Amino acid sequence: MAVEFALIAPLLLLLTFGIIGFGYAFHLQSVLDNAARDAVRVFALQQEGDARATARQVATESAQTSVDADLLQIAIPADCAEGDLTTVTVALPDFQLIGGLWTVDLIGSGTMRCSG
């Protein structure tokens, strides 16, 4: 009985930690998508002030509960002409799964028509 458990236990542990790691990566992907969606909304609708800086701040604040803000890469277009589609991308490069066995790039994006 102990021999069988000793053979199966590493596989069960790997499977368990793999499920936990995948679930956490899925959570972070959702956080990045929401941060990008919040940022593009502000960028596309803000008429006065520095819309890019405000959108960057909104994306950072939206994601900071789950991700260190220094690790985020936020891409915001230079301008937003009325009627055009604009996309904001929030990325977390080289996210490590299962203690660093695998790394993936998590990228969230949001698209919205400028000026509503």
Rank of each mutant, 00 (worst) to 15 (best):
C114N: 03
G21H: 01
C80T: 00
Q57R: 14
V40H: 03
G108H: 03
T65K: 14
Q57A: 15
D70A: 12
I19Q: 02
A69R: 11
Q73G: 07
D79T: 09
F95G: 05
A59C: 10
S115L: 11
V58D: 02
T86S: 10
D105H: 08
E82R: 11
G116H: 03
D105W: 04
A2G: 15
C80A: 04
D50R: 11
P10C: 05
Q73T: 13
D105C: 02
I98L: 15
E4L: 08
S62I: 10
T54K: 03
T111P: 00
L85G: 11
I20M: 12
E48S: 14
A35L: 09
D79N: 11
S109A: 08
L97C: 07
P93L: 06
G99D: 09
A75H: 05
S109D: 12
Q73E: 15
F5I: 12
L101C: 02
A81L: 14
V88T: 06
I107P: 00
T54E: 15
T16I: 11
L85A: 11
V42E: 08
V42T: 12
T89F: 08
S115G: 01
Q29S: 15
M112R: 12
G108Q: 04
A2K: 06
Q46L: 09
L72A: 05
A36P: 03
R113M: 13
F5S: 04
A63W: 06
G18R: 00
L11G: 13
A51L: 01
V3C: 06
A25L: 12
L32C: 09
D50P: 03
C114T: 01
G116I: 10
G100N: 08
L15F: 13
G100F: 08
V42C: 00
G116T: 04
A39D: 06
A9L: 12
S66W: 13
I74S: 06
P77D: 02
V3N: 02
D70W: 04
G23C: 08
L11M: 07
V31E: 13
A2C: 08
C114P: 05
I20Q: 02
T54M: 09
G100L: 07
G100S: 08
G99C: 05
I107Q: 10
V90E: 00
E82C: 12
D50A: 10
L92F: 08
Y24P: 05
Q47H: 11
N34Y: 11
L13I: 13
V31D: 10
G21E: 13
G108L: 05
G116L: 09
E4N: 01
H27Q: 15
G21K: 01
A91W: 06
G100H: 03
A78M: 07
E4W: 03
T111N: 05
L11T: 10
R52P: 00
F43S: 02
C80Y: 00
H27W: 14
T103D: 05
D33Y: 10
L92Q: 03
Y24R: 15
A6P: 02
A69K: 12
I19H: 02
R52V: 04
E48Q: 14
A2I: 10
L85F: 13
D68A: 07
L7E: 00
W102T: 11
